[in-house]
């Protein structure tokens, strides 16, 4: 009997000990937290402000009035290559320059861990682009959330929409202004191929310093999105010679340019 009592006591002590250890471990390596991603729109070295004049690589003076883009399919990658893929039902975001809240993307309930890279797509993937109406809610609703970011005749989303004025752009007789307009989409087609302008962005943290997700809180990624990158590298886009681009072949040039418009400035850890 005494032996049994002693045994029980020992078990109790051990259990307490291990439970305490497990709590510490929980804080470090398990649990979930939100990851914030700020899309900070820029025009070269400056913050993007609508109505302010900037100069593109072709030397043209540009004033922006619209800068919207879809980002989707977020993946967080650990140093060992293992991935956390944000669930399909919560991985689509529409960032609008004139709606700062829309540019603060929150990835909910990310598993704790040390992540060294962030991957996502500029645009809306092909599977979602051909999915039924029941799966097009929120920012993907063509009549409401995606209003102005959806083509009904070449059914799919406008991935990136850039509009503005420039003295170098030709006069638009409709508005009486010298305008430029770049609406870029196309996901590769369904029953027959089309141009595919989907771009994947992969951003490694600086010097392998991880973004830490802990039960107590998650990191904040501060990204720069440089609208002037759409006008250069690999090909300079001139508002004088190509003032508009929609669902035509030239959209490939525009998309290849903006593929690298998003960079990682820094990560705040909790």
């Amino acid at each position: 009997m005494e032996k049994l009592k002693l045994g029980l006591l020992a078990l109790l002590v051990l259990t307490t000990f291990f439970t305490a250890c497990k709590d510490d471990e929980d804080d470090e390596l398990s649990g979930f937290a939100d990851v914030e991603i700020e899309f900070d729109n820029r025009a070269g070295d400056a913050s993007l402000v609508f109505g302010t004049e900037y100069t593109n690589a072709a030397g043209e003076k540009l004033t922006f009035s619209t800068f919207n883009y879809f980002v989707s399919n977020f993946v967080l990658v650990k140093a060992d290559g293992s991935e956390y893929v944000v669930p399909k039902d919560s991985c689509y975001f529409l960032c609008k320059h004139d709606d700062p809240d829309s540019r603060e993307v929150v990835l909910k309930n990310v598993p704790a861990g040390d992540y060294t890279s962030l991957k996502f797509m500029i645009g809306v993937d092909s599977a979602k682009s051909v999915s039924p109406a029941s799966e097009r809610t929120g920012v993907l609703d063509p009549a409401t959330g995606a209003n102005g970011m959806y083509w009904s005749w070449n059914a799919g989303y406008i991935f990136v929409k850039v509009e503005g004025t420039s003295p170098q752009a030709p006069l638009n007789p409709g508005t009486g202004e010298n305008t430029f307009q770049y609406h870029t989409g196309l996901f590769g087609g369904y029953d027959s191929p089309t141009l595919n302008n989907l771009k994947t962005v992969s951003l490694a943290t600086h010097h392998g310093e991880p973004a830490k997700v802990r039960r107590s809180g998650g990191p904040h990624f501060h990204l720069y999105v440089d609208v002037l990158e759409m006008f250069t590298a690999p090909t300079n886009v001139s508002v004088a010679t190509n003032p508009t681009s929609h669902a035509g072949p030239y959209s490939k040039t525009v998309a290849d340019n903006y593929a690298d418009m998003i960079t990682l400035d820094h990560v705040h850890n909790p």
């Binding site: 209003n147 009904s152 070449n154 029953d191 027959s192």
Partner: peptide
């Protein structure tokens, strides 16, 4: 073949400037 899913066929006719020329949110 500009529309790949039956659900989105009507939006093309509704938004076409020479067919119904209406905005979907206005229809709703």
């Amino acid at each position: 073949g500009g529309v790949p899913n039956l659900d989105f066929v009507p939006l093309n006719a509704i938004q076409s400037p020479v067919e119904m020329d209406e905005l979907p949110d206005q229809v709703l």
